[in-house]
Amino acid sequence: AAAAAAGGQRDSGGGGGEPAGPTFAELGLQPALLAGLERLSIGRPTAVQRLAIPALRRGRSALCAAETGSGKTLAYLLPLLERLLGRPEAPAAEAEGPAAPRGLVVLPSRELAAQVGAVAAALCAPAGLAVRGLTGGGAAGGLRRQLRAPPPGPAVLLGTPGALREALRRRFLALERLRWMVLDEADSLMDESFTELLEEILAHRTQVVVVGATFPAGLSETLAKFTDVDRFVTFSTQSLHHLPPHVQQKFVRLKGRDKLPELLQLLKERPSSAGAVLIFCNSASTVNWLGYILDDHRIKHLRLQGQMSATARAGIFASFQKGDVSVLVCTDLASRGLDTSRWKE
Rank of each mutant, 00 (worst) to 15 (best):
A92K: 02
A93T: 14
E96W: 15
P98K: 12
A99E: 03
P101A: 10
R102V: 00
L104Q: 05
L107V: 15
S109L: 07
R110D: 07
A113C: 13
A114K: 13
Q115D: 13
V116M: 08
V116N: 08
V116A: 13
V116L: 10
V116I: 15
G117M: 11
A120D: 07
A121Q: 15
L123M: 10
L123K: 12
C124Q: 07
A125H: 14
P126A: 11
P126V: 10
P126L: 12
G128V: 12
A130L: 04
T135S: 13
G137F: 14
A140R: 14
G141A: 11
G141P: 07
G142L: 06
R144M: 05
R145G: 02
R145F: 10
R148D: 03
R148E: 09
A149P: 01
P152G: 04
G153T: 02
G153V: 00
P154N: 08
A155L: 08
G159I: 05
T160V: 09
A163H: 00
A163S: 13
L164N: 01
A167W: 08
L168A: 09
R169G: 13
L173F: 14
A174R: 15
L175A: 09
V182W: 03
L183M: 08
D184W: 07
D184A: 10
A186Q: 02
A186G: 04
A186D: 01
D187L: 01
M190T: 02
D191N: 11
D191M: 00
D191C: 01
E192N: 01
L197S: 00
L198S: 00
E199K: 08
E200C: 08
I201D: 04
A203S: 14
H204A: 05
T206V: 15
T206M: 09
Q207N: 10
V208E: 07
V208G: 04
F215P: 03
S220A: 14
S220E: 13
A224V: 01
K225L: 12
K225H: 14
V229A: 05
D230H: 13
R231Q: 14
F235T: 08
Q238L: 07
Q238H: 11
